[in-house]
Design a protein around this nucleic acid. Structure first.
Length: 723
DNA sequence: CTGACGAACTTTTTT
DNA sequence: AGTTCGTCAG
């Protein structure tokens, strides 16, 4: 047996982790230290050396992307297909368990997965039904409350009512929400996890089966697990101490959505026989970048303690650019990227990272203006698009008539004369009799209390669904999708819409048919769950929202938030908007815990850079419609000066970073001329100073005149009056 | 049921 | 500023 390919490419610490006997293990893997590699090789090792069958291995990740990558890397390493290996996201695995054991999980076989958009709609409707004032009870907040409870494993029945009005009302909605989901066979994302936990907890036979089956359970990004995910992992592995987790407390950036770094500490308590291995050798960045990142993260308290190092050289200094304003910042960044490309660099090796999505705009504009191809990550994904969700809702209704969320979504899309009144009546009946909207519609028709027109419209809708279902029988999956797309009237609806958008929506619907054709249901799951192809496709759509842009092979500059940059690496990185109030964000500055999370985010951002790192901030920024003059981010001060070089494209009015810092070699600002200074010229009239160059007799300024436009003037000759 | 207007918001995001 | 959401009138 040849194991050299498995252990040879590893360093000592990695090898130790990979070859350790089955036991509880915590691998603290710093950024760029080969975390995924350890996981992949560990699994390969178990299969090839320990003789564990692929069937006996479970690996859990947070994103579908990570799961896919891990699977393909294992297959590359072992040179066999690893389809019996359970690799998936927490939600994906939970879903699979629930499908297999729907009955024990107390779910109908036909249960459908709701994404957060669906969930929000359900909550909104519920608030209406319960006569809540939406202005006092924002649906988002209610949704957040429900999910937060579920993430902690708390059901409505566990909550003890107090006198607190807020709590009582939230509880009321939570209860009603649970009832409705129960009735409609709907399961939201948090519910998937909670149910899966309860399934194992309450069914000893099921638990025993999976405890026996999984010889080793692997978890990626363990610092991002929430309470219920960890509880679920413990159930699965407590008996055998066979939990292998990889994580980095310094990269925990999802506390705000329920992730508990503390799980890393709990792990050490719960598995007393565990082993800890630290991976500190970094294979990504230069020494300078790592040292600076280490310095920053050292300001956080209560770390596990880790210091990244590299065998690579020191590399270039980190560049710091103080921009005049956000326009100038974008201009600078794009100019540097263009220089990088001109020197032969790939566009896709350059990334602009920002704290909030709103910041992408100025960069997009400048990139667009210079015809530089770029790609923005995040944003609306394929299965999230309204037209796609509508088509899917028809399909879901065919599969499960009692799916109220889908029913509401499409009953009047396209409009078919079923108004608010009819809908209201149905909701009342549904609520009073605890039945689904579909059943309520039938009751309503039989009551014969509606006008003939409304009755016919309603009957028409129910018939449409029944007909579609009947016609779909025996068809291939993609033919079913095609049938629905063509027959439910969505195409006609969008064709009528304003030229530009409507056309795109029709194309998206066609793309959906195509996606159904390509959907590989055999590879996706083992289908031991006996799901119909349609149900598998629907689950796939909910659990894997698909990329926002189809695979784009063009070489593009990458734009994304710091959060979405986690796990990625780029040769050239720009960390922009390093300003107090932006990064760290305003909301986090007076909370020590949240501030530390921001700092970790900064650490994550910096460690994305392989060769060159640029930090930029603007001295003036238009934010929420008004001009602000933020201070440079405190994180900038946390980097020792020896790692930083200030870059000046133009004369600058940058304020010194620290009081002790020696004056930089910025050009003197003669007299009262500053960037942004308003001046007046005898001939050209009023203008604003844009740039300055040279000194002494050579000193000249660039001025943007209101009437005459942009001009360079020699200070020695031009007669300027300061305004 | 559309369209228009006004108000209110504005971190991060995956499933 | 810019977007989105909800309400109101037609």
């Amino acid at each position: 047996m040849d194991v050299t390919s498995i252990i040879e490419p590893l360093n000592d610490a990695q090898r130790q982790a990979v070859t350790a006997p089955s036991q509880a293990m915590l691998v603290l893997a710093g950024a760029g230290s080969g975390k995924t590699r350890v996981l992949v090789h560990r699994i390969a090792w178990q299969i090839q050396v320990e003789g564990v069958s692929a069937h006996g291995i479970l690996a859990v990740t947070f994103t579908n992307k990570a799961a896919k990558e891990m699977r393909s890397r294992i297959e590359d390493l072992l040179k066999v297909s690893a389809h019996t290996l359970w690799i998936g996201t927490f939600h994906g695995i939970a879903h699979r368990l629930l499908r297999r054991h729907a009955k024990q999980a107390k779910l109908p076989e036909t249960f459908q997965v709701m994404d957060s958009g669906d969930q929000l709609r359900v909550v909104k409707r519920l608030l209406n039904t319960l006569d809540f004032d939406d202005s006092k009870w924002p649906p988002r907040e209610v949704q957040w409350y429900i999910n937060a409870q579920k993430d902690e494993g708390i059901r409505a029945r566990h909550i003890i009512e107090t006198a607190d009005i807020y709590q009582r009302q939230m509880l009321r909605v939570y209860r009603a929400y649970e009832d409705l989901c129960e009735r409609s066979g709907l399961v939201d994302f948090a519910e998937l996890l909670l149910r899966a936990h309860e399934l194992l907890r309450d069914n000893p036979d099921v638990l025993d089966f999976y405890q026996q089956r999984f010889r080793q359970v692997h978890v990626d990004e363990f610092q991002d697990t929430n309470t219920i995910q960890y509880a679920w992992l413990r159930l699965l592995t407590d008996a055998k101490d066979n939990l292998f987790v990889v994580g980095d407390d310094d990269q925990s950036i999802y506390g705000w959505r329920g992730a508990k770094v503390e799980n890393i500490y709990s792990f050490q308590k719960h598995y007393p026989n565990h082993q800890v291995i630290k991976l500190e050798q970094n294979y990504r960045s230069t020494g300078t970048i790592l040292k600076a990142a280490n310095k920053i993260i050292a300001n956080n308290a209560g770390r596990m303690g880790k210091e990244l190092w590299t065998e690579a050289g020191e590399g270039d200094l980190i560049s710091l650019y103080a921009a005049f304003n956000e326009q100038d910042e974008a201009y600078f960044v794009v100019e540097r990227i263009r220089a990088w490309i001109n020197e032969g660099g790939l566009r896709s090796d350059a990334a602009i990272l920002y704290r909030s999505n709103a910041q992408s705009r100025q960069f997009e504009e400048k990139l667009m203006a210079t015809a530089t191809p770029y790609r923005v990550y995040g944003g609306l994904r394929f299965f999230d698009r309204a037209e796609i969700k509508n088509a899917l809702a028809y399909l879901r209704l065919m599969s499960n008539r009692h799916d109220d969320a889908s029913f509401e979504r499409v009953i009047n899309t396209p409009t078919r004369g079923i108004g608010a009144k009819t809908l209201d009546d149905m909701r009342c009946i549904a609520r009073d009799q605890s039945i689904s909207l579909w059943a309520a519609a039938i009751v309503l028709i039989n009551q014969r209390t509606m006008t003939a027109r409304a009755t016919n419209a309603l009957i028409g809708f129910l018939e449409l669904i029944k007909q579609l279902d009947k016609q779909a029988e025996g068809l291939e999956l993609y033919e079913k999708v095609k049938l629905v797309v063509e027959k439910c009237g969505l195409v006609e609806l969008y064709q009528k819409e304003k030229m530009d958008k409507g056309e795109e929506k029709v194309e998206n619907l066609e793309e959906l048919v195509n996606a159904a054709r390509l959907f590989d249901f055999s590879a996706d799951q083992e289908n031991e769950e006996n799901l119909s192809e349609l149900d598998m496709f629907l689950a796939h759509a909910a659990l894997e929202a698909g990329d926002s842009q189809a695979d784009d092979y063009e070489d593009c500059v990458q734009l994304m938030t710091l959060h979405s940059a986690k796990g990625l690496e780029f040769k050239l990185v720009f960390l922009v908007g390093m300003e107090e109030g932006l990064f760290p964000s305003q909301q986090s500055v007076d909370d020590a815990g949240r501030l530390e999370e921001e700092r970790r985010l900064c650490y994550v951002g910096m460690t994305r850079a392989m060769q060159q790192l640029y930090l930029t901030y603007a001295e003036s920024r238009r934010l929420y419609g008004r001009e602000s003059y933020p201070r440079p981010s405190r994180f900038l001060r946390e980097i020792p000066n020896e790692f930083i070089q200030e870059v000046r494209m133009r004369a600058s009015i940058s304020r010194p970073l620290t009081a002790t810092k020696p004056k930089t070699t910025s050009l003197p600002t003669t007299g009262s001329y500053r960037l942004g200074q308003r001046v007046s010229h005898a001939k050209f009239g009023e203008g604003v100073v844009l740039q300055m160059e040279g000194s002494g007799a050579q000193e000249s300024v660039q001025i943007n005149f209101k009437q005459a436009g942009v001009k360079w003037l020699m200070l020695a000759y031009a007669k300027l009056d300061v305004l």
